[in-house]
């Protein structure tokens, strides 16, 4: 990515982030910026590295290269004491609502835990008051604080997870597919809750999903990931109206629409083999693949101001 476009007051600045599992790179040279109050959508198919990116940014797993600058301080390089202090501002909501809650803790204790860690001056009644207020804010009754996670539905557990993440009013909230394990009717409620909380606290948000409708509803800008790389990055409307990368186009075409009664045939089948080491990793599925695509991997370039794509034929495809 071209550094010249990066505005200096980015809250989170990720550069060349690379994660390897057993020598195989699952995240390759990912770079992006996130600004205060902004919602960044991250879409991509299963296994494209979305959750890995979320965990690597928060150093819940080890990146092998790259940097994650939070307000100018590199999270990947700082010592664990500093990192723990910084976690106050960096919170995450997980995909599986029940698994992310300690089964031995009442939900009240779970929500109170960040307060116990970071607001040591708070006494017991004040803490209980904050927890009760937060429970009501996420749409649960304050009297539920004494219950255990298994007594709740998935949607309610996710509200608890959101309450835990938001109780310290963090500056950054990462949502790792927070609604994909929930019923469609509950998804809307949770998404609206997240949007309201974000608006109240001016929280920056990295929202990961494979549900394009949800991402479109929430995001200011959208990142598209394929096979561990960012292939397109654009403001929301530009991405939905004028997608550049063939993968983004296939992704948008796959969304069922009332105005397109004929289901779109999949552009190409998913290749049986792993992506080859050289060249563009999407070329085996790409209907526009040319000779150059097999030779070198296309860099993420600014095709139109503010609109980045990693495709050799981006400019041809624009026309």
């Amino acid at each position: 990515m071209n550094d010249a476009v990066a505005v200096t007051d980015a809250l989170l600045r990720v550069r060349d982030l690379r994660v390897e599992f057993g020598g195989r790179a699952v995240l390759r040279e990912v770079s992006f910026d996130l600004f205060a109050g902004e919602t960044l959508g991250l879409v991509g198919e299963s296994g494209s590295g979305k959750s890995t990116l979320a965990r690597a940014v928060l150093r819940l797993l080890r990146a092998s290269r790259g940097s994650v600058a939070w307000r100018g301080r590199d999270l990947l390089a700082c010592d664990s004491r500093t990192l723990r202090a910084l976690r106050r501002d960096l919170q995450i909501v997980f995909q599986d609502p029940l698994a992310s809650l300690d089964p031995r803790m009442t939900i009240g204790e779970t929500i109170a835990e960040p307060l116990r860690i970071f607001e040591l001056a708070l006494d017991e009644p004040a803490r209980a008051g904050r927890v009760a207020g937060m429970l009501e804010r996420v749409g649960l009754a304050a009297a539920m604080a004494g219950r255990y996670p298994h007594e709740f539905s998935g949607g309610q557990c996710q509200r608890v997870g959101i309450a835990r993440a938001m109780i310290l009013s963090p500056a950054l909230l990462i949502c790792d597919e927070p609604v994909s394990s929930l019923d469609a009717s509950i998804q809307g409620q949770i998404v609206n809750l997240l949007r309201d909380l974000q608006a109240d606290n001016n929280t920056a948000m990295l929202f990961i999903s494979h549900n394009l409708a949800v991402v479109r509803h929430l995001s200011h800008r959208i990142l598209v990931m394929y096979s561990g790389r960012l292939v397109e990055m654009a403001p929301r409307d530009a991405l939905f109206d004028r997608p550049i990368h063939p993968y983004t186009r296939a992704l948008l075409a796959a969304v069922p629409s009332p105005w397109a009664p004929q289901p779109q045939p999949a552009a190409t089948a998913v290749p049986a083999s792993l992506p080859s080491a050289t060249g563009c990793s999407y070329r085996e599925r790409c209907r526009y693949a040319a000779a150059i695509c097999a030779a070198t991997e296309p860099p993420l370039e600014e095709v139109v101001p503010g609109h980045f794509a990693a495709c050799h034929r981006a400019r041809e495809l624009m026309t």
Partner: peptide, 22 residues
Amino acid sequence: HREFIEAAVASGAGTARIICRH
């Protein structure tokens, strides 16, 4: 490797706290 342990780490809990409380 259960997710609630990861959630506690992300909340800023230290090693001693995670061992004792989770």
